[in-house]
Write a protein that binds this DNA or RNA. Sequence first.
DNA 1: ATATAAACGAGACGGTACGTCCCGTCTTTCG
DNA 2: CGAAAGACGGGACGTACCGTCTCGTTTATAT
Lengths: 201, 201, 201, 201
Amino acid sequence: MSQQHMSPPKRRGRPPNQLAQARILKAAHDILTEDGFGRLTVEAVAARSGVGKPTIYRQWANASELAMAALMSGDPGIIAGGGTSLRSALTGQMRSLIQAFATTRGRQIAMTLAAADPESEFTKAFRNQVILSSREAGRALLLEAAARGELVLQQDLEVLLDMIYGPVFYRLLVGHRSLDTGFADSIVAIALEAVAARADG
Amino acid sequence: MSQQHMSPPKRRGRPPNQLAQARILKAAHDILTEDGFGRLTVEAVAARSGVGKPTIYRQWANASELAMAALMSGDPGIIAGGGTSLRSALTGQMRSLIQAFATTRGRQIAMTLAAADPESEFTKAFRNQVILSSREAGRALLLEAAARGELVLQQDLEVLLDMIYGPVFYRLLVGHRSLDTGFADSIVAIALEAVAARADG
Amino acid sequence: MSQQHMSPPKRRGRPPNQLAQARILKAAHDILTEDGFGRLTVEAVAARSGVGKPTIYRQWANASELAMAALMSGDPGIIAGGGTSLRSALTGQMRSLIQAFATTRGRQIAMTLAAADPESEFTKAFRNQVILSSREAGRALLLEAAARGELVLQQDLEVLLDMIYGPVFYRLLVGHRSLDTGFADSIVAIALEAVAARADG
Amino acid sequence: MSQQHMSPPKRRGRPPNQLAQARILKAAHDILTEDGFGRLTVEAVAARSGVGKPTIYRQWANASELAMAALMSGDPGIIAGGGTSLRSALTGQMRSLIQAFATTRGRQIAMTLAAADPESEFTKAFRNQVILSSREAGRALLLEAAARGELVLQQDLEVLLDMIYGPVFYRLLVGHRSLDTGFADSIVAIALEAVAARADG
DNA sequence: ATATAAACGAGACGGTACGTCCCGTCTTTCG
DNA sequence: CGAAAGACGGGACGTACCGTCTCGTTTATAT
């Protein structure tokens, strides 16, 4: 009869057990926070979640993908802080980004990304959702400000975004200096000076 | 006590085989370029170099350190290109840096760093020699230019350096956009505009 | 097991699909001849026959029973060759038995029997139909000959039968010598000499 | 097992740990007697013996070979009973053979042999040492008796041996009748009557 | 006609064991 | 006495099947 609008595909066999998936992600997340990325093995997750290994492998190709899924599952996403001006909005976002990444989690995210197959679809989703979502939010802030006439953006917006968000991962990966709120503020300050200079010129 | 006259200590027994170290590094380097970081195991290096595993473990604590050693051994170091102005010198350096990292090697360096124990002395040496040497060279260029009066640097030089060199590793790690010479030029351009604006202010 | 002439209970619901059973046995038989006993898994049979696993498990408890069913389904049964004398009849039967077992099938039968639960009803049926049917036919031949006065049988007929048919499975299992028609003839010759000697005494 | 007086080849590396091998065989033997052939997995043996799985796989290709090794390790070998006449010697040997095989061990031996790769060198050794050693002892007894003039052997000695020893494995594998001393006696009686008849003719 | 019910295909489930790879340590013999 | 060779206990890998359990889909009898 009428399929309405949302037609679920209604596959034939027994459907995946949603509870099992949740338990897997919970166990993976716990191992990640308690023991670190190096201990996140498929075997350990299976043992901890009370799930068979094949059930894990049905969904994720290896421990890296599982780690990414676990890191994504608890991630609320970095939302642009609702400031009134570009500077305050951007500063708010950078501060919360850095706060979220300054913990062990940040380094785990970097390690996971480094270990993952860069071509995998899963990796791309992780990249977009966890790594680049803040960058996209920043892009939106900059474009809105440009639309308001606060600044003039030229063709190298991509590079500008990389110069704002790249340093966070740089410090995370290399560890030569700490991540703190002052770092967030300084990045925004320098970036806005560059844009302002350009707007002036 | 007294070392007498003999300058070499002349320890008893068979001396360490210098050639073995070279063969180990050669094998590690070859595996790295042919099979990638994931295949660089102590076992594989021992087999390929015809050296016993204990001989490797005597010098390096694990495969990560060995990878770092291999990556360091062939590294000529990024030297600041000898331009006349700050812009040309910095652009030259960034171009050669990006050229050196755009290949598979760049990602291997990032993976190695992510996998390594961040506290180990070996990792610190690797970080300084391979990752931060370019940053230090950039610092020198900026300080020289400031000494020449080309610009005025204030207290956030560290952040500025991170905004110049961080984006390279950001793209390397995340892979959302390519590394090319245009990227190098744009980074330098934006960075100098920020400094100029500040100098103006 | 089967209620042939009883009024069919006409249970409600969909009746078992006869075709499915045939396809399962066909697939099991094909796998057995193509890939061997070790590859006869319930999973493989289900995949090859296009039948769900539960459909198989509804009829057979495990892969061993399925193997036995497949081996029984194609089995014409060893019938005593219709010779005029005991010697010719027995020789004919032994020859055809050995011919039937000299192929891969013989070893598969031995392996299946070894792997099966010796207490299971299914195993007993297999044993009687596939393994012991020839022995029973031989018993009939001997008893007929005794009735005709050709020989005198005493109380150890069971042992005599084992000495006639046991060597076939012995060579099959151990593989120290080949199964051929000469073997059949020699067994009959020795057995008859033993019986004749006894008849004389 | 050990070649005592042979000049040792003096291989380079660390020699195999004899204790580990012994512990593996002990564990395999215990599992075999306690849980049966079906539970003799490499994993279980490794866990029980406190040995790594690769240490087992270095010596045996799979669980079947390990089972054969365990069955061989505790086997004293069937020695011909020292009777004065052929009949008493053969009867003694058959009785002890049947006594040794009437337990669970006998069926395990049959199952192991059925499951093993018949071409493997290991299987051949097992066959010779465990299965055929009694047959060879019987051959010796018969040949000695022939040399003493007790009987005349003709060309089908191989078949005669199979008719003596085959029935034991036949009953073991098929399980249609029990193994007991009466069975041993009857086999010898019938076999000797066959030989005697032949000698008379 | 319409329930009702059984058997179907599909396929995910919790498990067990597989055989392999590599770890980092150790023990032995050779140079 | 260091270096090579190589076995060791250990841990995780990713795969194959096990036998069980939902599912949604036929296909039949019974209302």
